[in-house]
Amino acid sequence: MERVSADGPPISNLDYFILSSGSDSRAYQILSQIQAGPTSGTKIILFNYRERVANRSSDNPLFNYRNLAIADIQEVDCDIKNPSSSLSALEANTFDETKAIAVDISCFTKPYFFFLLKLLRERFGVLKIDAYYTEPQFYSFEKGVFTAFHTSSGPLSIIEIPGYSGQERRDAARKLIILLGFDGDLSREINEDVSPGETVVINGFPAYSPKFKDISLIANEKLVSDHNIRVAYARANHPFEVYNLLAAFKKEASAAEGDTFINVAPLGTKPMALGACLFALHNPEVRVVYPLPETYKDKYSDACWSSWVYELPLA
């Protein structure tokens, strides 16, 4: 895990750089540092969610990538609710274990980058990638810091992230590990749907900003105040810390209860979700559940804080 300086040298020697379009200013923070000119040999694959692109004028910040010097770009139209809608467009590419591949997860929805990482491993045999992430500087709290915060709106549907169904053995005890976010409704819904014997919440600490860890606890008050719930902490920008914590919980559960069906709900930051993704990739018996909303809010954060690169072994 390394910080990526905005003033640092260009990022070069990549075969593929995969990202999602977005109207946040962080959407193209890393892309702007990628050497993607005619001689670079780097192909940019940009996912355009139909729902995000619809009804946007051409001067919308979402299209700012068009102002960058990119020689080879593939725009993949996809459906926010159905990650496999991008499958056929990706098949044309020659991903394999020899290629240098980087994925910027900043503006991807979580189910999408979960899908993408497993796809790269399962279909194309990619064994490692670099994941980039730019932290937002602000979140917008429409109704005040300690009241409702939603990254999504409209009805929710709790799903298994495609490709992460896990394996529930007979008589296995269900354990739910929630990476805590600001949206308290989501954790409650998931806990009710999964109905585990034990629930653990992992709060991001240190958070991007000192208050965030408290906001997430307050927003999830109902769940957290339950006397059966354990609270643990992992750094909000550190996927590997989350990974290690999940591995420790798994070991602990195996020792205590024998067969345990671990469910992970990655509601917190994207780096935390990345840790959960990696853990589920390495432990295919683990299920990943996620609340798929009707729509994601167009913009719930703004400006750029630190950017990070994580070297991820997919197998």
């Binding site: 490709g163 169904s165 394996q167």
Partner: peptide, 16 residues
């Protein structure tokens, strides 16, 4: 039980 697990595996793989 083994047959049930086979369905789980299928549900996970069918995505790809």
């Amino acid at each position: 039980d083994r047959r049930l697990r086979f369905i789980d595996t299928y549900r996970g793989d069918v995505t790809f």
